[in-house]
Every structure is written in structure tokens, then in C-alpha cells.
Design a protein around this nucleic acid. Structure first.
Lengths: 113, 113
DNA sequence: TCAATTGTTCGGAAATATGGAACTATTGAA
DNA sequence: TTCAATAGTTCCATATTTCCGAACAATTGA
């Protein structure tokens, strides 16, 4: 049984959050998680079906270690949720500011509308 | 004479801004520029004297290409200013949100007080 | 003209990202 | 119980990026 490392709220760093969200795929994953009632498996949260499983797994690990998401095992799947309250407590306004900006960034969506 | 590439405001991307600011040294540079009346040479803006010149030059290039700073040549030195208005126009609230968070991030300052 | 200063460019070493293949863990069916 | 299917992880090789030192270019002042 693999158990996951989640940093405590106080151990979340700005550099970690920014570099995690600097990747368009990871930003898209976070956006997707927040939209879809906050809980998705890894493959369901993937913004692009052509990404290799190993790459996707790595993206989720980065998001986990940055403190952006929490992952728990539920059967075969993993349930991922955004640690919105923790991020807000650590860096008030940051996550929402970034997500709001992502709406006006044409380069951000992996699959543009 | 080396001339610099500065992206137009509309070409500034969220991923570029976030990945540029995800590096603590670059974030510190931007903070320093904003504090010191907004204009500094590259070495003067360096948060840490042990960083190699070539590395510093690279950091400034990244900031420039992300659209975060503008560089103009003034004699031997380069004058760097933060494109605060452009960033604000492109991504309202983003830069200030990140800078505000950097105050409460102990890991952010290169030379902690 | 020459030395000093500022920053860029180049080359190699170290770190990181990506994808394919093999592996583990869990579920459901026979 | 045994077997196949599914979801992620880990390992490995390749490719890209980062960092530094050294050499270089441009400007200034003596």
C-alpha cells in the first residue's frame, strides 16, 4: 500500500505552489478538480488523453508535494481534492488570483475552446 | 549592441509569469526592483552576491522574456524596471497577490532576516 | 590607448521532465 | 481460489533545462 506525503499547511512554500501551477497541465488539473465538485481520479482529471500515465503520475506527485492537492486511495482509483482551504490559510487570495488569471490566458487551456 | 526582446503585453502568458516567479531568486529580484524606486542594474538587483554573473544574466533574461521586467542599456549598466502596469493590465491582481504572499513565505527570502 | 566594469555567450556538468515498459495493488468474475 | 482488467507507481533511457566558469563584447574614464 502506497501512502502519500502531504506537507503540513505551514510547510507549503510559495515557490512550490508557483512552480507547480506554472505548468499548464497541472494548472488545468487544479482547475478541473475545483470545477468537478472537487474530487476526481487521476485519469479523470487529466486534461489531455495523450499524456503518458507516468507523466501524469509525476504531475500529481508534484501537486501533492506542493500541498495543492490531497490524494487518498479509494479502491483502485485515487481521489484527488484541492486543498483550497489550506492554500487560502497559507497564502490568502493567491489561488483564486491565479485561477482568475487563467481564464484570461489563452495559452493556459490545453484544449482551447 | 545587444537589443532586448520584450513581449507585448498581450503576449504575456500566465505560465511564463508563474514559472519566472517560481524561482526564489527571481522573485526576490522583482521585489527588490519594486522597492528601490523601480530601477536597478543587474548586479545591484541581485539578492545574493555569490550567484555567478552568467546565472544572474540568465535570470534577467527569463524575467524579460516573461514580460515581467523591461531592460534598457544605459552606458555599461542595464536599467531594469518591473512592468507592473503591463502585468496588471494582462493579469489584474496577480503580481500584487504573489508579492503579498512572498512576505509570509519564510522560504522565499534568499537572505532571511 | 589601456585598464576597469557590466553584462552576454559558450561549453560542459548536474538536475529535471517525458514517455515506454515492467511492476504493484485492488476489484470483479468465473 | 484463480484469473483478467484497471489505476497508478517505479524504473530506465533520452531530451531538455539550469548552473557555473571562462572567454568575449561594449562602454566608460584615466
Amino acid at each position: 500500500m502506497v501512502q502519500f506525503v502531504h506537507p503540513a499547511t505551514k510547510d507549503i512554500t510559495l515557490a512550490g505552489v508557483l512552480s507547480a501551477l506554472a505548468d499548464p497541465i497541472r494548472l488545468q488539473i487544479v482547475r478541473g478538480l475545483l470545477q468537478e465538485s472537487g474530487c476526481l481520479s487521476c485519469t479523470a482529471a487529466s486534461p489531455c488523453p495523450t499524456i503518458a500515465k507516468s507523466t501524469l503520475s509525476n504531475h500529481f506527485r508534484v501537486l501533492r508535494e506542493a500541498g495543492l492537492i490531497q490524494t487518498s486511495k479509494k479502491g483502485v482509483e485515487h481521489q484527488n481534492t484541492v486543498r483550497a482551504a489550506d492554500i487560502e490559510a497559507r497564502f490568502p487570495g493567491l489561488l483564486m488570483a491565479i485561477l482568475a488569471c487563467s481564464l484570461s490566458d489563452d495559452a493556459s487551456p490545453v484544449a482551447p475552446a
